[in-house]
């Protein structure tokens, strides 16, 4: 007899409970059980970063996390990045800089970049590129993404100044 597991977590600040198979990844739980389809599946093996979410204080690829491991954790997905109806500065600067084409990589880039700016408000270009090395984009050639992150960092610092 296979038994599913009840998992209690906090997702984007809200308590959430779901019933999953132990073999289901956190990515599958988010998309298929909770309808949070902002988090994307690219490679499903940890290389592309499209499925990036925050799990407590760390950045992870949700395809390489089991849903059951989220028990008791705080998860942040792309759906939790905007403040209500107001876009996060990163979301705005991705739009303004045309830092996306097909957009499948974008949620992962934005979640990963947010974690960077939360701990390093003024990163250098090298720091941004290194931090985002686990996120792949087949469309933009990266330069626009790096520029968007840089601009968001500058805007966020102005607001805080």
């Amino acid at each position: 007899m296979h038994t599913k597991v009840r998992v209690q977590t906090t997702i984007n600040g809200e308590p959430q409970e779901f019933l999953c198979e132990p073999r289901q990844s956190l990515l599958e739980c988010l998309r298929d059980l909770l309808g949070l389809t902002g988090t994307k599946e690219g490679c499903n093996d940890g290389n592309c970063g499209a499925c990036t979410v925050l799990m407590d204080d760390r950045v992870v690829t949700s395809c390489l996390v089991l849903g059951v491991e989220a028990q008791g954790c705080q998860i942040t997905t792309i759906e939790g990045i905007a403040r209500g109806s107001e876009l996060h500065p990163l979301q705005r600067s991705f739009l303004e800089n045309a830092a996306l084409q097909c957009g499948i990589c974008t949620p992962g880039f934005i979640v990963a970049a947010k974690a960077l700016l939360d701990q390093q408000p003024n990163p250098s270009e090298d720091e941004i590129r290194l931090w985002l090395a686990n996120n792949l984009c087949r469309c933009t050639g990266y330069d626009k993404i790096i520029r968007a992150v840089k601009q968001a960092a500058e805007q966020m610092q102005e607001v805080n100044a």
């Binding site: 990036t52 996390v65 686990n134 996120n135």
Partner: peptide, 9 residues
């Protein structure tokens, strides 16, 4: 080892 996300795990 890996990148940021891999190092988180």
């Amino acid at each position: 080892i890996g990148g940021t996300q891999i190092q988180g795990r």
